[in-house]
């Protein structure tokens, strides 16, 4: 069920981020539904392919979107059930996102463009460091709650759990926020709005895509953001009443809150130097590791 909510609202979250940024800049901003319009427009367009490219370039957006959609099926939204859940499902989620990234990177390399090669190179560097942070953050939540499927892990994060494991959950939240920002190429790790290709990471990798291919990429990107936002919302909104609509609307509010937070961070912070990004990512991993240690220490103590 959570997956359906995520797919429907995913493009809206980008609109919320943009509105938050516009508010800070004193602008009116784009319509909230702009990303839906963009996707609809792109689906109606034709495409231009570089003569250098091969089937890898055409498969990239398709496989990436398919992998992200499969991953979204395992994401719970607060107390709202994930479409499927099993012990260790978050590992599959992490590796499905890895598959999506692998295909995006290969599609970028397929163009033979120096800029896309550069973006791809940075993307794989950051991804290699983000993956441990993501898994450690989720494991810290799991070791506090004692469950190993995303659904069960997040189903018990209520006010009581925050009272018992506040420190662990807080550290996991910060680590997950860092992962969300870097995985979705937001400030301070990457700037989706920069005008200079040299400084881009994710956006430069998809320079050559157009038409429906780009629509797939845009939709995939917003679903990916929504997935991480759902995980964060599950942490910061500890409402688990058991009433489906109460839980769902609370979690949905949390989803938008995460989008607003991302917009606020983007408005208030400068982007990090690219050389600093790995340090931040290692710091997120360390923080998640400390969270696990704390959870274990609490678990061992009577």
């Amino acid at each position: 069920m959570a997956a359906i909510i995520l797919l429907i609202f995913a493009p809206l979250l980008a609109g919320v981020i943009n509105r938050a940024k516009a508010f800070f800049a004193g602008r009116t901003g784009q319509p909230l539904l702009q990303v839906y319009f963009d996707i609809a427009k792109l689906l109606r367009k034709g495409v231009v392919y570089s003569r250098t490219t091969t089937w890898v370039f055409r498969a990239g957006p398709i496989v990436s979107l398919a992998a992200v959609l499969c991953a979204a099926c395992m994401i719970p939204l607060g107390g709202v059930r994930a479409l499927m859940s099993f012990p260790g499902d978050f590992i599959l989620v992490a590796y499905l996102l890895g598959l999506a990234r692998f295909m995006t990177v290969l599609a970028a390399l397929d163009t033979g463009s120096a800029f896309e090669g550069m973006g791809a190179s940075r993307e794989v560097q950051f991804a290699a460091l983000t993956e441990p942070a993501l898994l450690l953050a989720l494991i810290s939540i799991g070791s506090a709650t004692g469950d190993w499927s995303l659904h069960e892990m997040f189903a018990v994060v209520n006010a009581h759990a925050w009272a018992a494991h506040g420190a662990v959950l807080a550290m996991a939240t910060v680590a997950l926020l860092a992962v969300l920002l870097v995985e979705n190429s937001r400030v301070p790790f990457d700037d989706p709005n920069t005008h200079l290709e040299l400084t881009m990471i994710h956006e430069v990798m998809v320079l050559d895509h157009s038409g429906p291919d780009l629509a797939f990429i845009e939709f995939g990107a917003s679903v990916k953001f929504a997935m991480f936002a759902a995980l964060l919302s599950g942490l910061i909104v500890p409402v688990r009443t058991g009433l489906a609509w109460v839980d769902a609307s609370a979690a949905l509010a949390g989803l938008f809150a995460v989008a607003v937070v991302a917009g606020v961070i983007e408005s208030c912070m400068a982007r990090l130097r690219i050389l600093r990004v790995p340090q931040m990512l290692v710091a997120a991993s360390v923080l998640a590791g400390v969270a696990i240690l704390v959870a274990l220490a609490q678990g061992v103590a009577p």
């Binding site: 392919y49 570089s50 499905l96 429906p212 797939f216």
Partner: peptide
């Protein structure tokens, strides 16, 4: 995953069958 890939590929084919598909140089900014 395989099913979704096949589905999306089919969607793309259907869309592109009615649209212009051009070939050019790699966009190097």
């Amino acid at each position: 995953l395989f099913a979704l890939v096949a589905l999306l590929a089919a969607v793309r084919l259907v869309i592109l069958s009615k649209r212009p598909v051009d070939h050019g140089l790699t966009w190097d900014c």
